[in-house]
């Protein structure tokens, strides 16, 4: 399953027709997520990444013109930054519990209650839904507000303005 991701990375190195590739990337990512048992997340990722983002990117691309980015002038600084960050991450993750280790802290500490009690306490079979809407409902409220913020923000930014003309600098 993971090979798919590696391929997806190869996609990302190539930057032509980025939008289409981004859509493919989302599909692949979602498939990997399914393989990792994250069904709800995969569903969201697929619908967001392959559906909405593609449409949005295309819409914006149309407004912005689809010309190519110029080749890089000085790729070394970004590479260096990226390398430093990888270094930090590699350093950090070497001490993490191994993949699929049932005794890792995340499996023993908070979660058992969700898995064991969610059905009884909330009457919902899908534990993700139960946690999402009930245990951590406030996060989801926040999430809704984030979406709302984006929506209102886009309205605010893209509303046609009678007084200002065509977005020209004053």
């Amino acid at each position: 399953m993971m090979a798919v991701t590696v391929l997806a990375i190869a996609v990302q190195r190539n930057l032509f027709s980025v939008v289409v590739l981004a859509g493919i990337y989302s599909f692949l990512m979602a498939t990997v997520l399914v393989a990792l048992d994250a069904v709800d997340v995969a569903m969201t990722e697929a619908s967001v990444g392959a559906g909405i983002s593609t449409v949005l990117l295309l819409g914006a691309l149309y407004l912005c013109g689809g010309e190519e980015a110029k080749p890089l002038a000085r790729p070394w600084l970004p590479l260096a930054v990226a390398a430093v960050i990888t270094g930090a991450l590699v350093y950090g993750t070497l001490g993490l519990p191994a993949f699929s280790d049932p005794s890792a802290p995340i499996h023993v500490h908070v979660v058992p209650r969700y898995l064991n009690e969610a059905l009884r306490e909330t009457g919902v079979q899908n534990v993700v839904t139960a946690v999402l809407a009930s245990y951590r409902g406030y996060d989801t409220l926040g999430e809704t507000i984030v979406v709302f913020t984006a929506g209102a923000g886009v309205i605010a930014l893209l509303r046609r303005l009678r007084r200002r003309g065509n977005g020209e600098p004053r």
Partner: peptide, 28 residues
């Protein structure tokens, strides 16, 4: 979260001692 299994700040603080010098915590 991977090291402590919790997201609550107070709970996290309570579970961190003993893990303090592990690399993930430092990276975090």
């Amino acid at each position: 979260y991977l090291m402590t299994g919790t997201l609550n700040l107070a709970d996290m603080a309570a579970r961190l001692p003993g893990l303090q010098t592990t690399r993930p915590v430092l990276a975090a």
